[in-house]
């Protein structure tokens, strides 16, 4: 009986350790705690080019993360990319003439959506569309343009 009980206690400890490890991985290592993707409200923005923007990329305002990219899809009628943004519920006063850019973090970093507030007194609400957007800068295009301008200037 004693041996049996000892085994059971050790097995219990083992399983508890396993679950604690899984919990640690979920909460401390992964984005599960930060995810909470069902909260907040949704905005859409249309871009002529999203570059390599990924789902779950950050949405920032003044450099602070206020939400995430929920989906990126293609509108076959207007040939534009439709990006759905999930904005944290606490950020509920984004002006409706806000400008959406796709930036790159560093020269080779990940792309993210940066919002620049306008001056309108009206705020965007769930389901609204951001009217003013700036497409992603594609490195090859920039280099091409640069060379073209140099050639034209001579």
């Amino acid at each position: 009986m004693g041996r049996q009980r000892g085994t059971e206690i050790l097995v219990g400890l083992f399983m508890a350790a396993g679950f604690v490890a899984l919990f640690f991985l979920a909460m401390q290592v992964s984005n599960l705690s930060a995810g909470a993707s069902t909260e907040g409200y949704r905005l859409t923005a249309r871009f002529s080019n999203v570059g390599s923007l990924k789902v779950r990329a950050p949405v920032t305002m003044a450099g602070v993360r206020i939400g995430r990219v929920e989906s990126v899809s293609f509108d076959k009628d207007s040939y534009e990319a439709v990006v759905t943004l999930r904005i944290d519920p606490s950020v509920d006063s984004i002006p409706d003439d806000t400008f959406a850019n796709i930036f790159t973090a560093g020269l080779l970093g990940e792309q993210y959506v940066g919002l620049e507030p306008g001056g309108s007194p009206d705020h965007l609400r769930d389901g609204d569309t951001i009217a003013y957007t700036q497409a992603a800068l594609v490195l090859e295009q920039m280099i091409g343009q640069f060379l073209f301008n140099r050639a034209g200037g001579d």
Binding site: A17, G18, V20, A21, F24
Partner: peptide, 8 residues
């Protein structure tokens, strides 16, 4: 469970 412990 062992793999989770290993990773953690």
């Amino acid at each position: 469970l062992l793999a989770a412990i290993f990773s953690a």
